[in-house]
């Protein structure tokens, strides 16, 4: 007891010192604030860019698979095969092409998001009733207008569900990027393990989950704004 009091009196940071090494430590959050903010920013950047890249690649692939049923099993098979490869193995396989950079992590994560997104986009487009599409064609809709005004809005709920799954898992997977030193909060987790720094480890882990939950909520909110007609049906 006297030791603790003495330590506090000396103004030492008590709860994350080598001696105590507590799991939860408010002092740590204050003292290493900038480090935590930097890691969180990097984590968010990598996640958002990866998911956006995934969407940009997945959308034409899904349209192609719908247009040409012959390609469908090939596209789905390829994306599933990528999904099967562990993240820690996929990143090294990209290194010869993109080096030790954030690009490597972004491409790897986008490839994983691709699997989920292509599937949900295809399933979403399939969920559009044929009668609705036929009526639209009967009304003189061209193929672009059909896609933008009929297919996409009606497929949106299923596509957004896939986007949620892809985003949440990308947040979690970003930590593995610490292998090439671009892992956002994963870098802190790695440091926490190698230096046995519990407060850092716990804070970074919790922040990862918080980011996942916040992004998930943002997507749900966006979906509610984009598809106001589904609200009445739910209730």
């Amino acid at each position: 007891m006297t030791l603790l009091v003495a330590a506090a009196a000396a103004g030492e940071p008590s709860c994350y010192s080598r001696l105590t090494n507590e799991w939860f430590c408010g002092q740590y959050l204050q003292d290493r604030r900038s480090e935590l903010v930097d890691a969180t920013t990097q984590h968010l950047e990598i996640t958002v860019v990866s998911v956006l890249l995934g969407v940009v690649i997945a959308f034409p692939l899904a349209l192609l698979a719908r247009r040409l049923p012959r390609l469908e099993s090939g596209i789905l098979g390829l994306t599933t095969a990528i999904y099967t490869i562990p993240s820690l193995a996929l990143l090294p396989l990209l290194v010869p092409f993109t080096g030790l950079s954030a690009t490597t992590v972004v491409i790897g994560l986008a490839l994983y998001a691709l699997t989920i997104l292509v599937r949900s986009m295809l399933e979403g487009l399939r969920s559009v009733p044929d009668e609705v599409r036929e009526s639209a064609i009967g009304l003189g809709f061209g193929s672009t207008r059909l896609l933008l005004k009929v297919d996409l809005p009606l497929a949106l709920p299923v596509i957004m569900a896939g986007l949620r799954v892809a985003t949440v898992s990308t947040v979690a997977l970003t930590t593995v990027g610490s292998l090439v030193a671009y892992g956002g909060l994963g870098n802190l987790i790695k440091d926490g393990v190698s230096t046995n720094f519990r407060a850092e480890l716990m804070a970074a882990s919790i922040l990862c989950v918080v980011i996942a939950v916040v992004l998930d909520l943002l997507i749900v909110l966006t979906q509610r704004l984009l598809t106001p007609w589904t609200r009445g049906v739910r209730a």
Partner: peptide, 12 residues
């Protein structure tokens, strides 16, 4: 399960 990073849980 999806939201919790495998890496973080292993580390903990």
């Amino acid at each position: 399960g999806r939201a919790v990073p495998t890496f973080a849980l292993l580390a903990l």
